[in-house]
Design a protein around this nucleic acid. Structure first.
Lengths: 181, 181
DNA sequence: ACTTGCATGTAAGTGGTTACATGATTGG
DNA sequence: CCAATCATGTAACCACTTACATGCAAGT
């Protein structure tokens, strides 16, 4: 599941610019399971256009740079459905935080606490995005996916809030804490 | 959080061969949030050895190929703790299945059903691994991470079992189903 | 004055995957 | 007899990231 297919999926739901596609990947309701940067989106869009799967028009705006709005073509829709029919790529979940957490006992408490708080903040932000998504202006499939996200993000935040202090307690006590006393 | 650090983390817990490291990434308790293939593990190990962060010895076995067992060095332990102290990389979660699910309404019911079952099977397999992990021979930090995994894998499987039929129902009915009747 | 948001794009670099090469043993 | 498991490694390839290049407007 590459950036190319990702772009097609977003354009299938409606017209967008490269910039907007990227924003959806960062702030959108589905941002918890998709990812793409400018450096991959723009070339993907250009390639898609050269293949006739999307078309573009430039739109002037006052006070803002000219933008290039992409639309999916009928051929693009076909290609997208075709792509979805092929074997799915593997689910990818990589967590630097969990790897870090496994070795909390080696690390200073301050650091573990900072990282745990950081992680909680990120998780609850994602949770907020997915929880805030309203059922209006959303088809049933999207709602299904959002609800899956809500369930997952929900327990993640819950588990963290309930148990992060345990992890912090397992970290190494600062050596010069009582020395200062 | 690259393969290099991953190898260091595994060797920190005990000696291992490249082959064993890969098995841990596929079947281990932490396989749900780490990933690495042979093509990245072997070069990483070689580089680590050239840097003096790990050492190796070859061990003959009868009926099996000779293996190369790696051990972490004191310098390796230091480097690992150092690495963990630096800013963590981003959490990565990419789900081809969820992208697929968003467009279930475009796809034939058979396909959606097959993919959903496949996904459930994979999820419950991962769930089994993390649930089966016993608290004995595990430090408290590892247990914390495993419990996080249990919570997450648990709801994933639960949600799927409870709601996958809804997703399947949203898929397109086969065109020649009643035609055959 | 500086940063942020809007907006598009390229080029270099990298961190990985996939496929290949090799080979013995065990189990179905 | 074929597939899988054990075991190590290389080489080609690729998708994506990061940094760069550009520039205007609005807010702090």
């Amino acid at each position: 599941m590459n950036v190319r297919t990702l772009c097609l999926s977003i354009l299938h739901e409606g017209d967008a610019t490269g910039y907007e596609i990227r924003r959806l990947c960062v702030d959108g309701e589905c941002s918890y399971f998709i990812e793409a940067s400018f450096g991959s989106i723009y070339p993907a869009l250009a390639r898609l256009e050269s293949e006739g799967l999307v078309s573009s028009r430039t739109e002037q705006q006052d006070g803002k740079p000219t933008k290039k709005v992409y639309s999916i073509t009928p051929a693009g829709r076909d290609a997208f459905v075709q792509e979805l029919s092929e074997p799915l790529g593997e689910e990818t979940f990589r967590s630097p935080f969990l790897l870090f957490a496994r070795f909390a006992h080696l690390l200073p408490r301050d650091l573990v606490e900072a990282r745990a708080n950081e992680f909680l903040r990120e998780r609850s932000e994602r949770n907020k995005i997915v929880t805030a998504a309203k059922a209006t202006s959303m088809n049933a499939c999207d709602a299904w996916v959002i609800n899956y996200g809500r369930a997952m993000m929900g327990v993640a935040e819950e588990y963290l809030r309930a148990h992060m202090h345990e992890l912090i307690a397992l970290a190494r006590a600062e050596p010069n804490k009582d020395a200062a006393e």
